[in-house]
Design a protein around this nucleic acid. Structure first.
Length: 578
DNA sequence: GCCGTTTTCGGCCCGACTGTTTTCAGTCG
């Protein structure tokens, strides 16, 4: 999809315009379109071909023309011209904390700095402190910014950030001075990766709490320490910001610090039309300056005639329009899930036995689980041969007769081989309760070939689910080159479910594709791909993706009761959306 | 550059903090 290519170009344009000191609202228009494109559930080329570019909010004449130019010629003259006036390297300076567009422009203009290397040299030669508006401190800060940039981690995975944040919250929540506490920021919105962790507290004794926070044993470095805000770095270079507000402002502050920024811009714009002003302390009548709300987050939305918008939806991807029309989806809850459909055991590359996995699942409260070990071609994962698979049938039958309150479904994660055939013949697949198909080899094939492999797997009547469809590993491996729109279309036609893989490093399909899939009539299956009992607990990350993708209970096949699910699996074609 | 229940022109979210300054610009979220 060209969506992300265009988003990148518009984002670069916005940065260059900032450096050039252009009209801030023009810049915002470009920043806005970046976020719109990143969240667009359809292919921009499809929208263009239908002549519907101007239906996209934030796309006016000028941007529509630029999108058209890029889609038809694969380049954008305006962008190329801008690049001649401000080199790439100068734009790259913005990646350093402490350096914004004005400073980047100044450094380039006065000192010819157009790369981070040249910047470092200028700092070391103390050539920066004499520039207008700069001083000793600025130079020190830039140096610190460069150091942080060099050792900067990639963004933190949701699955790594959440436990760290929960741990700190648990610690602080035990203090009697803490009246209320919550995660905020992108972590509360359950974004797939997090820049830093934001925590919000309501208290009358900020001094006591700040002291406790900055002296936590896991703290490596204190970046700043004040009465309302402190920032620390803990192990693995993770930054945590703690903010403390008065109890009466907690709701407004939570709404504000949860973001996203684009969501908040829209919310405050809406407030203006109602003659109101919203800041992190509350909602105020613009004329009388009287405070009319702030303690509860839900009040903010209510005052604007909006239903409560769950944090996962706050990306300015249509949630405000939908809320005003009262058509927001009632998104999936963790408690809606009746089972986990993707589990490995020590029969292949898992660590625990089938029984141990079943007991853990029963503890969680599931009605059923699917045991889906690897198939024979996947030697590296000790894939099951046909003989082993038949032995496994016996064990599962035996266990089902012994264990109470949970049903073990017998399945397989069958390999889609590089020629597109499946690793087991239909006669074998037809005997299993559930079949997941997935690509594990030939990852670098041509787009057409890879797409065709997945499509032919979906056309097999015994394949119920495609696992980790795009194959991405966040921060390590890009998605396979596949035509995801075609895959989604055929999934709808064949009644094949697409997986939301809950592994924090996969989260595949992602939120945006989930939304496309839902709109095309595809149902999804949430699975943890757990390789040990602990892995079963990752299911909440898959649920977060589903929620961010606007999915509801009926969009997920493992919200079905056991009997309903078995019906659904027996004849998948019946569930196709032709 | 986008947008419209007074508007096709004139608006466009809001505040904290920092450092370099004598009243404010730049950056961040």
């Amino acid at each position: 999809m060209k969506n992300s290519e265009l988003a990148h170009i518009f984002s670069q344009i916005a940065k260059i315009l900032k450096i050039k000191g252009e009209n801030p609202f023009k810049i915002r228009a470009y920043e806005n379109i970046v976020s719109v494109l990143n969240g667009l559930p359809t292919d921009i080329e499809t929208v263009y071909r239908k002549g519907e570019l101007n239906h996209i909010p934030g796309v006016g004449k000028a941007i529509a023309k630029k999108i058209e130019e890029y889609l038809t010629t694969n380049k954008l003259e305006y962008y190329e011209r801008l690049n001649e006036s401000v080199p790439f390297g100068v734009v790259g300076l913005l990646d350093i904390l402490e350096i914004g567009p004005k400073t980047a422009g100044l450094l380039y203009e006065k000192l010819g700095v157009d790369s981070i290397e040249k910047l470092e040299k200028a700092v070391n030669e103390h050539r920066i402190k004499d520039l207008p508006g700069m001083g000793e401190k600025s130079e020190e800060n830039i140096l610190r910014g460069i150091k942080a940039y060099k050792k900067r981690h990639e963004r933190i995975l949701l699955g790594n950030a959440l436990p760290v944040a929960s741990n700190v919250i648990e610690h602080l929540d035990g203090m009697k001075e803490v009246q209320k506490i919550s995660i905020a920021g992108s972590l509360r919105r359950r974004a797939e990766t997090i820049g830093d962790i934001d925590i919000l507290v309501a208290s009358n004794h900020p001094d006591v709490i700040m002291k406790e926070f900055t002296s936590l044993p896991q703290v490596d470095e204190i970046l700043s320490e004040g009465l309302t805000k402190s920032s620390v770095i803990i192990k693995d270079n993770i930054q945590i910001d703690l903010r403390i507000v008065d109890f009466s402002s907690f709701g407004a502050a939570l709404q504000y610090f949860t973001g996203s920024q684009n969501h908040n811009i829209r919310i405050r714009g809406l407030a203006q039309k109602h003659g109101l002003k919203i800041n992190e302390y509350g909602v105020y009548d613009t004329e009388s300056e009287e405070k009319i709300a702030g303690e509860q987050e839900v009040e903010i939305y209510k005052i604007l005639n909006l239903p409560y918008i769950p944090p996962e939806l706050r990306e300015d991807r249509g949630e405000i329009e939908s809320g005003l029309k009262n058509t927001l989806p009632s998104i999936l809850e963790l408690s809606d899930l009746k089972g986990d459909l993707h589990l490995h055991t020590n029969w292949s590359d898992g660590k625990n036995s089938i029984l141990e996995m079943a007991i853990e699942a029963r503890e969680i409260g599931y009605q059923y689980i699917a045991i889906t070990d690897h198939s024979q071609s996947l030697g590296i994962a000790a894939g099951l041969t046909v003989e082993k698979l038949y032995e496994q049938v016996k064990e599962i039958k035996q266990l089902n007769s012994e264990i109470k309150d949970i049903t073990i479904l017998h399945g397989i994660e069958v390999d889609i081989k590089s020629d597109g055939s499946l690793d087991f013949p239909d006669e074998i697949l037809s005997e299993l309760d559930i079949v997941i198909a997935a690509i594990h080899s030939g990852l670098k094939q041509e787009r057409e070939q890879l797409t065709q492999r997945i499509i032919s797997a979906m056309q097999n009547r015994y394949v119920h689910i495609i696992a980790h469809t795009t194959g991405r590993i966040i921060g390590y491996r890009e998605p396979y080159q596949i035509d995801i729109n075609r895959v989604i279309k055929i999934a709808a036609e064949t009644g094949t479910a697409l997986e939301i893989n809950s592994c924090p490093e996969r989260l595949d399909l992602n939120d945006v594709y989930c939304r496309t899939a839902k709109e095309k009539g595809v149902q999804m299956a949430i699975g943890t791909d757990a390789h040990n009992t602990n892995g079963l607990k990752s299911i909440n990350y898959g649920v977060s993706v589903a929620r961010r993708g606007w999915l509801e209970k009926e969009d997920i096949i493992n919200t079905l009761s056991l009997n309903e699910l078995l019906q659904r699996l027996k004849n998948k074609k019946k569930f196709s959306k032709l």
